[in-house]
Structures are given as structure tokens and as C-alpha cells.
Simulated scan of single mutants.
Amino acid sequence: MRHFFSILGGMGTMATESYIRILNQRTPAKQDQDYLNYILVNHATVPDRTTYLLDHSQPNFLPDLLEDVQQQNLLKPDFMVMVCNTAHYFYDELAAASDVPLLNMPQETVKALQKRYPQAKRIGLAATAGTISSQVYHQYIAAAGLTEVDPTPAIQEKINRLIYQSIKEEQGAVDATLYHEILADMMHQLNVDVIILGCTELSLAQELAPNHQYPVADSQSIIADRTLELALKLRQA
């Protein structure tokens, strides 16, 4: 297979399914052959990212992802994309191990946010506790001259409940009321200009419950657009 890319997914599986669905829906296709060539690595047994980042005595997820990258190197894709925000804690190590470009979801999200919301200054980050504590987004937000605003403990509890109890435990079921409540809390309690959806489960919530008025920068939607742009460009090369 020529001109294909590799997707490092399965963190979690239902969120990865959302990425694939969005990517395919946005591909300009009128016949089978118009869709993109890709290999999906749905590595569902990767240790929980947040569990490790909050407690380094727990299983580290880096070795599993390094193995995935090394396996995909043998297949010679054009590029790789990893559809898990929290896993980007080890982006530098994984990019160094890859023989091809590895797209950077947090970096691409902040770049897209700046274009869509040029007046935004206070950026709310809705994400896993692991992403928040390890500051996965911080360097990109700070480099853009923006202010990162993290959830309060009460809001983080709601985010955790939506990610783990609603979506992960219920196989992709989204509590739309809870999702919209989280967005409202962040906008009104934290006085932010825009909210980054910095977890792919939150991106799934946005896909299935988009009927709200709050400005969001959806990381998975953004990386799907970047994937599509790059794949189509390389196909024409």
C-alpha cells in the first residue's frame, strides 16, 4: 500500500472510533478509491495514562507506545498520528523514535485555536487530571502568549465523571447534560474566552452533543482536519 499513514489509537477505543468516523466523513469521496489509506493501531491494552501520571509507581504507558511506533516504522507510513491528548506527555520520546513525522495534537490545537479565536486570551482546558497535572498543553498555550485556566476541583470531578463513568464505562454513551454543564461552569465560573477539549472522550461528547453555544477548540476534530490535509497533500505528491 502506498501513501498511507498510521493511527496510534485505542486510548480509548470509542474516542478513536469517533476520530475515524469524523475523518471519513470529511474526506472528499465519491467512490471507494477516494478515501484515505491508513492503518489503525487500536492498542486498547495500553496502561491508563492518567493513572501513571498521577502515580509513577503504576505501569508506565511509554514502552507500549514506543513498541507501536517501532512496529509501524517497519511498514514505512508517510506519517503517524496519535489520538490521545494525555499520551502526548511523551511526545518528544515518541517523535524521536519515529522514522516519519508524528503529528502533535496539543500543538495543532493551539495553532487552530489562534486562527479561529484570534481575540481569545484566557484559555480554559477541559482534560483528564493527568493532562492537567503534567501540563501537556502548557508549553504551547504559553508560547502563544495565552493564559491557561485549569478546572477547579469541582469542575474536574465532573469532567472525570463524564470521561470515565459516562463514556468509558458505558461504551461511548454521552451524558449531554453533564457535558454542557461542564462547558457552562468553565465559561461562567472561570471567565474563559474559549475552552480546549483536551481529551478525546470530550471530543466524542462534542460530536454527539454539539447543541450548545459555548466556544470550543476540539482537539480531535482539529487533528482530524490536519490528518486529512496532510494525507491528501502527500497523495498528490
Rank of each mutant, 00 (worst) to 15 (best):
P106L: 06
P63M: 09
R49N: 05
D99R: 02
L103C: 01
H88K: 10
T51N: 13
L102N: 00
I39E: 13
A96W: 09
F79D: 05
Q72W: 09
E67I: 10
V110N: 03
T45E: 15
R116K: 15
Y89V: 11
D92N: 11
Y38K: 10
D78M: 12
H43P: 10
V41P: 12
A96G: 12
V83A: 04
L102I: 02
A44Q: 14
F61I: 03
T86W: 03
A96H: 12
V46R: 03
L40V: 05
D64W: 13
V83T: 07
T86F: 04
F90M: 04
C84Q: 06
Q72P: 09
H88Y: 01
L74S: 06
F79G: 00
L66I: 02
P59K: 06
Q114T: 15
C84P: 04
D48W: 05
V110R: 03
N73Y: 01
P47H: 06
T51E: 13
L74R: 14
V100W: 08
Y38Q: 02
N85I: 05
Q72F: 11
T86M: 08
E67C: 14
L40T: 04
L75T: 12
L75S: 13
T86A: 02
V100H: 06
A96S: 14
S57T: 15
S57W: 05
Y91R: 02
S57C: 11
A95W: 09
P59I: 05
D55G: 08
R49P: 07
E67R: 15
